[in-house]
Design a protein around this nucleic acid. Sequence first.
DNA 1: GATTCATATACTTATTAAGGAATACGAATT
DNA 2: AATTCGTATTCCTTAATAAGTATATGAATC
Lengths: 127, 127
Amino acid sequence: MELIKIYACLCDLTRLRLLNVLVQGPLCVCHFQEVLQEPQVKISKHLAYLRQRGLVQAERRGNWVIYALAPKPSRELKVNLACLQDCARENPVFKRDVARLKKIEPACAWVQAGEPAKAPGQYRCGC
Amino acid sequence: MELIKIYACLCDLTRLRLLNVLVQGPLCVCHFQEVLQEPQVKISKHLAYLRQRGLVQAERRGNWVIYALAPKPSRELKVNLACLQDCARENPVFKRDVARLKKIEPACAWVQAGEPAKAPGQYRCGC
DNA sequence: GATTCATATACTTATTAAGGAATACGAATT
DNA sequence: AATTCGTATTCCTTAATAAGTATATGAATC
């Protein structure tokens, strides 16, 4: 059932933080590392978990792989993501993540805007 | 974190069904069996799971143990239970459960109403 | 006191998950 | 061609979970 899958995705703190950040817009793995302050394997594996269950999409751009919320989310998913944001607003962990995100803004916003791939040499993280 | 605990409780179908039924009012294990059509062990163990995490309360009355939603739920829990109900409204599984519940209504409503223990011989299930 | 009833608790087995270390992979750079 | 960079995957260990069978518990009945 769709609902179970969603809750399974939500019952891990790292994934909760990933989703909370993703709500703001697409982001590549290296930026997730910076925002969450967690090792690459951890980030990468939890993103894979979310991707396998269809909550999240990946797109390669040069060396980067940019993750975004899946388009056309089910009603259940929409409702629960809204619910998560509601709860996350007051939580120090999530607030800190968003604060760190703001610093590197607009990180990968150009992807969402549909811009073509960047010129060579533009995919350097600087983490 | 409170949120993780909540989502952990929600990521199993049996527990989701239990909670969805509990929203309607207190119920004893034997009635859960009837409503969910699941074996006693399964029901009992998942209720224990919910109780250990504070989502649910138990109270013994004769042979019966009556479960109810914990009083004074956190904001996160309230929001998520509301969200669950919202999603459950259209789902055949949950709808069927509620339908079966209606048939045995008012099952354990007298507990919520604060009534004293029933007279001897009144705790026969009839399942 | 023995039995029945409703519920809970081992015990077992199988599955899934999380984390870290090391390594593989694909694309870009030198 | 070799290296670097960003990311994914494999392997391993450990722990948590779910489900079923059998058994225990506690209260009420006979």
